[in-house]
Design a protein around this nucleic acid. Structure first.
Lengths: 147, 147
DNA sequence: CTTGCTGCAAATAGTTTGCAAGCTG
DNA sequence: CAGCTTGCAAACTATTTGCAGCAAG
């Protein structure tokens, strides 16, 4: 079981490469925003990214955060995920297929990767197809509590 | 496979009973709103409910729709579900355990019940438990396209 | 009657957009 | 230098709230 997100703070160079590699201009702001995304636990909201970036880069505006997040999503660096209550957007730096553990108590969302589970679902829906629907990807929400 | 929601329009009396049974006052507006929820396909937004109710009941305001939806959720008649893109809320009249087919093209959400799938997941997580997490319920999001 | 519900309008929260000035490649 | 990005403020969209009058039980 894997927990989100990356472990050690990435270097300036790594950030730069991630951006240019994705075809984006590596501005100071974007590097700071990307760093925040990779550093923050869980699936942060735009507001959380903004508050994380602000102390180090006080000139970055919330609008810039939104624009950067949009281009990151467009470039495939990020995925937009819906907040549990559906009023906010959250951003997920892990773009591989994965599932979510949702804690009932804390509302926390933990990423969960499990190739065995993926395989199980693949097989299940291969034999048991839909009449009018062609599945592309699966995402399992597992609600429960920590123990 | 079952699609949401109920098929035939419920009678005035049934609506009344649903509401009073849930401990709510059965006002004209609420009956109209509940009827819309039970009639509309997929998981309607507040706006969609409003537009559905309006022709028959032109005096109902959008604010009233929101307030009614809130009390329905509180009374357990409805569930709030997040829109795929996380900017809107949708409401689901089916409060039993079920999964979702999400259409990439239309954003439509279709309910999907499948006891076999439930069983499969149960068994899978019974043998392959988590260290720090106690699962309670599963909800599978199947993204794809109509065919 | 009396308590909760409605309708309206104003308030909020989150996100998007327009545009002049700045920075990156 | 050309064009994408930024910062700011205003605009939008979805939802919530306050309050006087109304209606259900």
């Amino acid at each position: 079981m894997s927990t989100s997100p990356p472990l050690s703070a990435p270097s300036r160079d790594q950030l730069h490469q991630l951006l240019t590699g994705a075809g984006l201009r590596a501005t100071q702001q974007r590097m700071a925003i990307l760093e925040a995304l990779l550093t923050l636990p869980g699936h942060p909201t735009a507001e959380q990214v903004f508050r994380c970036v602000r102390p180090e880069h006080p000139t970055v505006s919330l609008g810039t955060v939104y624009k950067a997040l949009d281009s990151f999503v467009g470039a495939g660096l990020l995925k937009r995920v819906a907040d549990a209550d559906g009023t906010r957007r959250r951003y997920d730096t892990d773009c591989s297929n994965h599932h979510h553990l949702v804690c009932q108590d804390t509302q926390e969302i933990i990423d969960y990767c499990d190739p065995k589970l993926d395989q199980l679902l693949q097989e299940f829906f291969a034999t048991r197809g839909f009449e009018h629907f062609q599945p592309r990807s699966f995402s399992l929400h597992i609600t429960g509590v920590r123990k």
